[in-house]
Simulated scan of single mutants.
Amino acid sequence: MSVETRWSAWGEEIAVQVTENAALGPAVGLVGAVLSDAEAACSLRRGDAEIHAVNLAQGQPVRVSVRLSGLLRSALWVARMTDGAVSPLAVEESPPGVPPIHPEPTFADIQIDDATVLAPWGVSLDVTDTAKADTADRAAALAGNRLECGVLVRIGSVVATAGHCPAGGWQVDVPGHGPVELPTRAAMATVGTDLTYGEHDPVSGQWEQVTVVADDGLWAYGGAAAAIRRGLGAVSWLEEQALAARLVDRLGRIYTTSRWSRPHAA
């Protein structure tokens, strides 16, 4: 038996589910605090967010908080794991009469030394989506450890779990498919081409929707978003990464990786 509450924050629906009734209020407080810290660090929609200082520095080093440093490191980790298919970097167009940047910067040009960040001139960073996935992981782990109960945290379409799970596992809906059983200390993310990723343009291509189950929300999101962008090569790439995944193409046809057939993602 578990209890749940939902609210809106950071442009997403937030859900918190716990296995102990008395833990729901404290869990909401812990999750809300983690959300607020992350949003203050990197939300491009907030004028006071720390990330604006990095984007305005244009080739100059900037000292940032531990929280923003962690979120930037997470985004760069996903970029490396996906060979740049999911990147936090956006190269600004040069003004008329100004030659374009050459060679064009990549995520590998972002340097983080302790809490000092150096991004090349002409680059803006948007870590909104990886930050939400990272925050779901951190919030679930924090609440599970502090409250010593089972916790599920959902931020938008990213779900992360911690602590012990309820009988029958965590039942999590996959859009257009129904619930799957998610074990504790696992995560799931669904990415669709009808979504806009942070401040980036919507993605179009082979796949309508990709759902990935992984050990944490950051990798579940990274794997699903990378698969959307990889097109025809997505299934083989997901198999190489040993990820449980379900893909729906533009014609409604469903493809799954071998690991999706396991009981926790059946």
Rank of each mutant, 00 (worst) to 15 (best):
Q171L: 14
C42Y: 07
E199T: 15
L232H: 09
I101L: 15
T5Q: 07
H177T: 09
R146K: 11
W237S: 06
T19W: 01
S124F: 04
T256R: 12
L182D: 12
L238T: 03
A90C: 06
S157Y: 12
A187C: 00
A119N: 08
E104G: 00
V16R: 00
T5P: 04
P95C: 05
S8N: 14
T211K: 09
V16W: 06
G169W: 13
S261R: 13
L142A: 05
A214G: 06
A133P: 11
Q58N: 14
E239N: 03
V213S: 09
D114A: 06
G176A: 03
E50Q: 13
A53T: 09
A189Y: 05
G168T: 01
A266F: 10
E50M: 07
V31I: 12
R73G: 10
A40N: 14
C149G: 02
W77C: 03
V191Q: 14
W10L: 07
E239M: 00
R45W: 15
A227C: 06
V158W: 13
M81N: 11
T196I: 13
I254W: 05
C42M: 14
P61G: 01
A140I: 07
A79E: 08
D126V: 06
V153E: 01
P179M: 12
P202A: 14
E148W: 00
W121T: 14
A160L: 10
V18E: 10
V151Y: 13
H164F: 05
L30M: 13
G144Q: 10
N55Q: 08
A57L: 05
S69H: 03
V78T: 11
V151G: 02
A38D: 12
A119Y: 01
T128W: 14
H102N: 12
W237N: 07
V203R: 03
A224H: 01
A187W: 05
E50I: 12
L147P: 13
S74D: 15
Q60T: 09
C42K: 05
T130Y: 02
E4V: 02
H102M: 13
T106K: 04
L182M: 09
P120I: 00
